[in-house]
Amino acid sequence: METIYWVLIAIMIIIGFIGLVFPIIPSVLFIFGGILLYGFLFTFEQFNWIFWVIQILLVILLFTADYVANMFGIKKYGGSKAGIWGSTIGILAGPFIIPAFGIIIGPFIGAILAEMIVHKKDLVTASKIGFGSVIGFISSVVTKALIQLFMVGYFLLVVLL
């Protein structure tokens, strides 16, 4: 039975990492859910208040990193809030509309369309902003992956030691 429990916990964590490339999946919630699942299936005894404070701070950092990286990438290339919203919609819709490349093309096109429609920017300027949204998204994925790896590593360190 213990093996089945560990498989379920691993599945939760794996889904969390899949959420990095499919943003519709709330990745951090699955990782945090895997930690909670361990507690319910085994024990919460190893998890002291320091563990929970660190994990919750990492969850907050993940949510913040996602927004800040996207905003920074768009703002750096002259974009606006409309570009940020367009990019966000593109990130969510892209993988479903263009399965193989939508995760990259979606935020690019979303930012371009938003800037052209809302702020009447020309195609060249809007394309630069779209490029910034892709840079922001990629930075966000790398940052979130590192934070999630730290969350899982810290969890495993506490559980296995």
Rank of each mutant, 00 (worst) to 15 (best):
I4A: 15
V7K: 06
L8P: 00
L8V: 11
I11G: 00
I11E: 03
G16T: 06
F17S: 06
I18Q: 11
P23T: 05
P23H: 04
I24D: 13
I25Y: 07
F32K: 02
G33E: 09
I35Y: 06
Y38I: 03
F40L: 15
F42C: 02
F42Y: 13
F42K: 08
T43G: 04
F47P: 15
W49Q: 10
V53N: 05
I54D: 08
Q55N: 04
Q55M: 15
L58C: 10
L62N: 01
T64K: 09
T64W: 14
A65H: 00
A65T: 14
V68I: 15
A69L: 02
M71R: 14
F72M: 14
K75D: 02
K75W: 07
K75G: 00
G78N: 11
G78M: 10
G78R: 12
G79V: 04
G79S: 07
A82E: 14
G83W: 10
G83Q: 13
G86P: 13
T88W: 05
T88V: 14
I89A: 10
G90F: 12
I91R: 05
I91Q: 10
L92C: 04
G94L: 10
P95I: 08
A100Y: 01
I103Q: 07
I103L: 11
I105R: 03
P107E: 10
P107A: 07
P107M: 09
F108G: 01
A111M: 03
I112C: 06
M116Y: 03
M116L: 06
I117R: 15
I117D: 15
V118D: 12
K121R: 14
K121I: 04
D122I: 01
T125E: 09
T125V: 10
I129N: 02
G130F: 13
G130Y: 08
G130Q: 12
S133F: 01
S133Y: 04
V134E: 07
V134A: 07
I135A: 02
F137C: 06
F137W: 07
I138D: 09
I138A: 05
S139F: 00
K144Y: 00
L146W: 02
L146Y: 03
I147C: 10
Q148L: 05
Q148W: 11
F150R: 12
M151E: 07
L156H: 09
L156T: 13
V158N: 06
V158K: 13
V159F: 00
L160Y: 02
L161D: 08
